[in-house]
Amino acid sequence: MTAVILAMIAALLIPMVEAFQDEDIWQRMLAFASIATKTSVMILAVSVLRDDWMIGVVGVLILSVGNAALMLLAHVIKRLNEVTEG
């Protein structure tokens, strides 16, 4: 189970590298979306590993609410690009 978590951390590093190196904002948004999902699944996995259900509830809540910010941000950036290009 610990090995699974370590593998998850390795998978989490990929979008972080991507967010670091790529300058395009949509590619970064993709990396953000990927990281948001991966972290909440990791929280769930850790809660199962420790059998600590308080963390599990938090993981589910973050999973179900966290993506909303992403959509709002996507819409703001889209509007922004529309205005900039006239």
Partner: peptide
Amino acid sequence: LVIRGILGAVAALVYAILGGADVAL
């Protein structure tokens, strides 16, 4: 702003793993 979102997600993960469920939320 986008990176701030990434930081927030990672921070929530760290807090949850260190046992601060309320802080993570």
